[in-house]
Design a protein around this nucleic acid. Structure first.
Lengths: 245, 245
DNA sequence: TTTCAAGTTTGGTATAGACCAGAGGAACGT
DNA sequence: ACGTTCCTCTGGTCTATACCAAACTTGAAA
């Protein structure tokens, strides 16, 4: 168990294994969602301890080349999904045009009262009743992001979710319709909460990309606060900037 | 060495330590850039092995509450910096208005030839000479992101960088002037390359946020490809979406 | 054929050591 | 006052092992 010798790179052993694993992934051109070798297999193949092999596989994960399904193994990541930030065009139908099927599952629907932050954002008094829906968005069976939208009225709720509804949409799932007229959006990187991690099937302390939207109607009145947390390796966000004035 | 007992949470030990450390950070309201306890100190304080303490501190890092300075220790992260995606307004002067000083250091300036991708983006033949500048952007002495801009002519270069120059700007640093008229932007999460990690003082396999811009003039001609990689815990990106048509 | 139990494999967690190189401070000698 | 050496502290890497629970595989019983 001497490790990978005779290389003069001064690269740590686990980084050398990362390089080797990457080569295997791209050269063998492993298909998306194909299983990677297990930690114990990598350890044996490279003559290192399991913890070292594990570090290498964790790097592969961090780089977005693979994802973990807990105690089932690690699998090759699919291509990234693009989310357009600049227009209110429908993400779901836009994806469908590119041949990407998105499944939406409503996992929670409840009535809550506005805390200070939500009251400020939506311009309602504190403790106002708000309607909150949480959905998991999946692509070919793999959870990609979790969305929580908070709206000021059932009407707003209906406007958001039920346009062009029915047909082949099963119960508990709903078609995602056009949104408001404009939205203020913030994107940042942060760690998943335990609840989010559970819904997405990832570890609670891993990082993803958070997107917050304050959705406004034609009059500029905010009627919906929409919050998404994405598996970071799977998403990308595009925008168009223009010179002001 | 029994660890944190009598808690019925079934939370792993290192996650319990994370909670304890977070409480210390927020309750003691540690100032930005204050040192956290070392791995060995945390291990001793909680009666666990150093590897377990290390895992806890790595989670604190992943959650953006602290950053590592290699063999000097871990320190409390500063607040996030906001980068507006929707307008071409100047990020640097915008930050200055909020009382945030940004230092820019030019770390590389070279002439390169266009590869296939750059040629396509900038609409020039392959092997066209391009001018490439790499800069490190720092805030109160802490490197925050690395930018590489590739422009088709020295003129473009000058337009980008020298507007409102001189005065108190030291040699090797330059004021960052107004950009083009519009830009196509993509934001995604990915791991740092070794070179980027070196410039930012982070580990090569950690993840950050990448932003790519294709900058166009009034006529819609792309003249600059601008690429930034941010320390993810320090940045956030805002945008404004509007209904098309 | 279906069902259920046992065994195998997986990743997740945790330990207790070890060595290294870089950064920083202290003591020392000039 | 200055520079140099040395010692200590830090995180980074690595080993070899252990136990757990979930998930999958196998095989036997119904």
């Amino acid at each position: 168990m001497i490790g990978i010798a005779e290389e003069k790179t001064a690269l740590p052993v686990f980084r050398q294994i990362v390089v080797a694993l990457k080569n295997e992934i791209v050269s063998g051109s492993l298909a998306e969602h194909t299983a990677l070798p297990s930690e114990r297999a990598v350890a044996k193949a490279h003559g290192v301890s399991r913890m070292t092999a594990r570090r290498a596989l964790e790097v592969i994960e961090a780089e977005g080349l693979a994802y973990s399904k807990g105690r089932q193994g690690r699998f090759v990541s699919p291509e990234r999904l693009d989310y357009g930030l600049s227009s209110m065009a429908n993400f779901i139908s836009g994806s469908a045009e590119k041949g990407i099927e998105i499944d939406i599952e409503l996992v929670n629907s409840r009535i809550r009262s506005a805390d200070g932050r939500l009251a400020r954002i939506l311009s309602v008094p504190i403790d106002t009743q708000l309607f909150e829906n949480t959905r998991v968005f999946s692509r070919s069976g793999h959870a990609t992001f979790v969305e929580t939208e908070t709206v000021v009225s059932k009407l707003g709720n209906a406007q958001l979710c039920d346009i062009g509804s029915d047909q082949d949409v099963p119960e508990g799932q709903r078609r995602y319709g056009p949104l408001g007229h404009s939205a203020d959006i913030v994107v940042r990187m942060r760690a998943f909460t335990p609840a989010e991690a559970d819904l997405l099937g990832v570890m609670p302390y891993q990082t993803g990309i958070e997107q917050e939207q304050i959705v406004r109607d034609r009059g500029g009145i905010a009627f919906c606060f929409c919050h998404q947390i994405w598996r970071g390796e799977i998403a990308q966000f595009s925008a168009k900037a223009v010179l002001q004035g």
